[in-house]
């Protein structure tokens, strides 16, 4: 039996509950992307927070709190078969307990750990690569990450920019974190309760006030000036800042004569000895 869920974390956990108490699942898939096939019947599972909570606590108590985090991190990834990876990982976890995380190279554990590393890695990367713009009264940042890392960014910026009001917009998924600043009532409340994620489809990028350009110009100047010309190494730079992130980075939006001609110029000025491509011939 294939179980279909609504895409929420609770929905996924409900499916896992039914996997153990109703009928073993052949697979779990999000309802919206499911392609029915003749060989395995499917069933839409209605999300039940009470059942989800039981699975949630079972993972925490019977496996470990760390394993619960792992499951959540894999859930927010965009791997197409993440639900089944989670199913396999939890299955082994209920057998082995906390020791499951020692078994790094097990086929049910290795892909889960690897995926988790990617998700955490991207979240960490974005802690640095996110760029806020002062829109006059609030800060606004746009991103389009590979994985749905928004929930992992909230606490960090809520603590760091506690006195500001800000929005982090995930353009790819039309979601955003809204943080409304420090007020007297929320000062003592835990950091997690001060921000929330909501659907968000406004495009605020074009409304940037002119005064913001001045700070962006300063940053772009700084960015260009601290580079040492005789160490020019764009391959290293590409490894550290992959091109897909550059669209939303102020320092890579160098105004006319255009970013591309700019790099070509520098290539002419600092020729490098050509390296042999790995698969020449």
């Amino acid at each position: 039996m294939d179980y279909l869920y609504d895409g929420s974390f609770d929905g996924l956990l409900t499916c896992i509950y039914h996997h153990y108490y109703r009928e073993a699942a052949t697979g779990i898939y999000p309802q919206s992307f499911y392609q029915p096939n003749l060989l395995s019947p499917s069933m839409v599972v209605e999300t039940d927070p009470a059942l989800a909570d039981r699975v949630y606590r079972a993972i925490e108590e019977k496996i470990s709190a760390r394993a619960l985090e792992t499951v959540y991190h894999v859930y927010i990834s965009s791997a197409p078969d993440k639900e089944n990876l989670i199913l396999g990982y939890i299955g082994l976890g209920f057998k082995m307990g906390a020791k499951v995380d020692h078994y790094h190279s097990h086929p049910a554990v290795y892909p889960v750990h690897r995926l988790e590393r990617k998700v955490i890695g991207e979240a960490h990367r974005l802690l640095g690569l996110l760029r806020f713009a002062d829109m006059g009264g609030f800060l606004y940042a746009v991103m389009a990450p590979d994985h749905n890392v928004l929930p992992l960014l909230g606490d960090h910026f809520a603590e760091r920019l506690a006195g500001e009001r800000w929005i982090i917009h995930d353009k790819k998924r039309s979601l955003a974190i809204i943080y409304n600043g420090r007020d007297s009532s929320s000062c003592k409340s835990p950091v997690r309760s001060r921000w929330y994620i909501t659907d968000f489809s406004y495009n605020l990028e074009d409304n940037m006030p002119e005064s913001e350009r001045r700070w962006q110009r300063l940053w772009q100047t700084y960015f260009q000036k601290v580079s040492i010309e005789s160490r020019y190494n764009p391959r290293l730079q590409s490894r550290c800042v992959p091109h897909r992130y550059r669209r939303y980075l102020v320092e890579f939006q160098i105004p006319a004569p255009g970013h591309d001609s700019e790099t070509e110029d520098s290539r002419k000025r600092f020729p490098r000895t050509p390296s042999i491509p790995p698969h020449s011939g």
């Binding site: 730079q237 980075l249 520098s266």
Partner: peptide, 9 residues
């Protein structure tokens, strides 16, 4: 936390 990388990497 690293925030960006310049053209010298």
């Amino acid at each position: 936390i690293c925030h960006t990388w310049t053209s010298d990497g």
